[in-house]
Design a protein around this nucleic acid. Structure first.
Lengths: 103, 103
DNA sequence: CAAGCTACCTTGCGATACAAGGTAGCTTGC
DNA sequence: GCAAGCTACCTTGTATCGCAAGGTAGCTTG
């Protein structure tokens, strides 16, 4: 029941801060959204190819370098579209869920 | 961004009334959820095989007979699980969406 | 310098939803 | 009473999403 919504969550998190993969996974986990890196890497690459994300390499103090992602200008616009779509969809589902009155 | 949620909507509509395919499509359309019959028939058959839905044939006054679907007892229980899952998921997404405060 | 950890990425699979197309019952018009 | 059209059912093929599993390579630690 989660499909397509993960992308919205990821873009939302990136709106707040520059972050790399493990941090993204932790951010979502703290909201009870479990995601694996096998899901995340293809998504980040896809969004980056679509020019919605950018990244820079940053060295780590304890391991290999990390890709820190952030939104591009187009990514910010995309987020606002996703946000509108999210609100529309939840409103629609709520209207169904609450019962569409009797027949 | 809608994946998996349609099933929840369909089961929700069926909680209120016995209905056949075209009626379901209309109910969802009136909440701005567009779905085609090519999506709906496989889903109804799948839910029926899982014993969550039952149907009876009813003759029409103007055309071929129709399959009127309704929830089984198991379907009602399933709906309550979907409803809980829906509330959990929207709560999670809202907490992400509203900004997970600064780093 | 070897072993282990971390971070990146790919591949194969199952499930969802859509578009397009197909069958058959029923009514309508001639 | 038969052809044409509508309605209702269903199937097939395709794209995409998300996951599990597996793989490469840099960095640290003993």
């Amino acid at each position: 029941m989660r499909r397509g919504i993960l992308e919205f969550c990821i873009v939302s998190v990136l709106a707040d801060k520059e972050i790399y993969t493990a941090g993204l996974i932790d951010s979502l986990k703290s909201a009870d959204l479990i995601i694996t890196d096998g899901t995340l890497y293809p998504m980040l690459n896809r969004l980056q190819k679509a020019k919605l994300l950018q990244y820079r390499w940053e060295e780590s103090e304890s391991g290999p370098p990390r890709k820190y992602y952030s939104l591009t200008t187009a990514g910010v616009e995309y987020l606002s579209k996703l946000d509108t779509a999210w609100q529309d969809m939840t409103a629609s589902v709520e209207s169904i869920r609450r019962g569409t009155e009797s027949e």
